[in-house]
């Protein structure tokens, strides 16, 4: 694990909130990304991502320093998200238009990293479409696909986050991707 993160975790264990603030800064985008990709709703995603951090702080004593902090944190986040999906009532939909907006959906309200203005609209449509299709997957495939494409996470790390064997991770990624292949046939990258 990164030395800085290790040092920060140790300070947090001693009760240092300032150190925890730094940890939040380091991981907030990743955690938010995972939760948002699985939930598809900005408000809920923010709620759950915040709750994940608060829980991590409260239960920091349970974190074993022999493991990666990010693995532990992502596990909290994915578990909370899956709980939320189970409890979720289909009360509003992502692609439902917002009141008063001209074709403005919740997708288009999401801050996106790095993009060129002239490509903006096309990119938005493409990104929205992929997100929509991810949300059509069963939650267990959703989490595997999201983690797989989040960053350089190894299959072993994903298996630790989701607490399932590596072979199961592979199966879920394959099945999830197979479903996406069928649904995204019309798109070119």
């Amino acid at each position: 694990m990164d030395i800085t993160v290790k040092r920060l975790v140790r300070s947090v264990k001693k009760g240092d909130q300032k150190a925890f603030e730094e940890l939040v800064e380091i991981y907030k985008d990743k955690v938010y990304h995972i939760v948002y990709r699985m939930l598809g709703n900005v408000h809920e995603a923010e709620d759950i991502a915040q709750e994940a951090f608060v829980r991590a702080y409260i239960h920091i004593e349970r974190f074993n320093e022999a493991h990666k902090f990010s693995t532990w944190l992502y596990r909290i986040a994915t578990n909370l998200t899956i709980d939320r999906i189970r409890k979720k009532k289909p009360d509003y939909y992502l692609d439902a238009e917002l009141g008063g907006g001209e074709g403005l959906t919740l997708y288009s309200q999401i801050a996106v990293a790095e993009q060129l203005p002239e490509e903006k609209i096309e990119t938005f449509e493409l990104q929205d479409r992929i997100q929509k299709e991810i949300l059509h997957l069963p939650p267990k495939y959703r989490s595997a696909i999201t983690l797989k494409y989040l960053e350089e996470l190894s299959l072993k790390e994903i298996s630790e986050i989701l607490q399932i064997p590596v072979s199961t991770v592979k199966t879920r990624i394959h099945r999830g991707r197979e479903a996406l292949r069928k649904r995204l046939k019309d798109l070119d990258c």
Partner: peptide
């Protein structure tokens, strides 16, 4: 198609946490 989907997923944007996220978390801590 599969290679294409893989590329699409790789290019799928990374989303950033909303503004003020960190302070909202800190305010909820004991």
């Amino acid at each position: 198609e599969l290679k294409n989907v893989d590329q699409l997923l790789h290019n799928h944007h990374h989303i950033k946490a909303p503004n003020g996220f960190t302070s909202k978390v800190i305010n909820q801590l004991p």
